[in-house]
Amino acid sequence: MLPYPLLTVFLLVMWLLLNRFTLGHVLLGGMVAVCSSWAMAALRPDKPKLRRWYLLPKLFGVVMLDIIRSNIAVSRVILQGRAKEHRSAFINVPLELRDPTALAILSIIVTGTPGSAWLEYDSRNSSVLLHVLDLVDDDEWRDLLKNRYEKLLLEIFS
């Protein structure tokens, strides 16, 4: 009946946000969402396995807080200008994550956070090349990425 329940719910929510919340729009949006999830099933994308979806809000909260913190840090680096030299560098981080959806989420988190950018993922030795704007300590960054985000993502998508 519903091949992608999460997609259907998101499409319905999007429809209701763009229009008003009335019974007619719930019915129409529901119809559109169900039909387009069938269309999606015809494309047969890989189905992500969400094991512990209840950890997603925790991940969301952690990421939002980190983005606020790094917004402040990057603003400071930019506004101080030449008074304090920052040290930007490339670092290579080996990852244990293999699931493509989890990797996509991790890359969005890393790039969406100001001050770090995901440059290249190497699937052969499963390591990622990052660029960090204000690098104090390599190991601190590896530790942050592995313990803060990767552990949670591994739990969600194990």
Partner: peptide, 8 residues
């Protein structure tokens, strides 16, 4: 590579 951090 430093500049791409700023627009985020």
């Amino acid at each position: 590579y430093e500049r791409i951090h700023a627009p985020t």
